[in-house]
Amino acid sequence: MEQDEWAVTAELAALKLSEGEKKRLVKQAEQMRKLYLSMSSAVVDNLEPTTHASVVKNRVRKDEVKPFKDVDTLLDASNELDDRFFLIPNVL
């Protein structure tokens, strides 16, 4: 059961785990999960979740184009290129 949940989780996380990794990581993950559950004794239902460390003023960017100067280095960083395209195996 535990193994199954972690297998689904690994799938969602795009991780392929070897058998050895599964054993090691699931054990540690369960240990941490149990630690997380210790929060259940905190009475917090009336509290808003904190999603940012600080609440600050509105921040927006003016709608202006500023091209990145070094676009070709971004292409060179890729593993496989075809002309100006990034190349990957076919999506079925």
Partner: peptide, 27 residues
């Protein structure tokens, strides 16, 4: 390990119990 744990606590069905709870505890 941390990616697995982070993915887990956000999964539907677990999110309230873990992630949202943790954010409230943070408050």
């Amino acid at each position: 390990l941390r990616i697995l744990l982070g993915t887990y606590v956000l999964r539907s069905g677990f999110k309230d119990q873990y992630y949202i709870k943790a954010q409230r505890v943070r408050t």
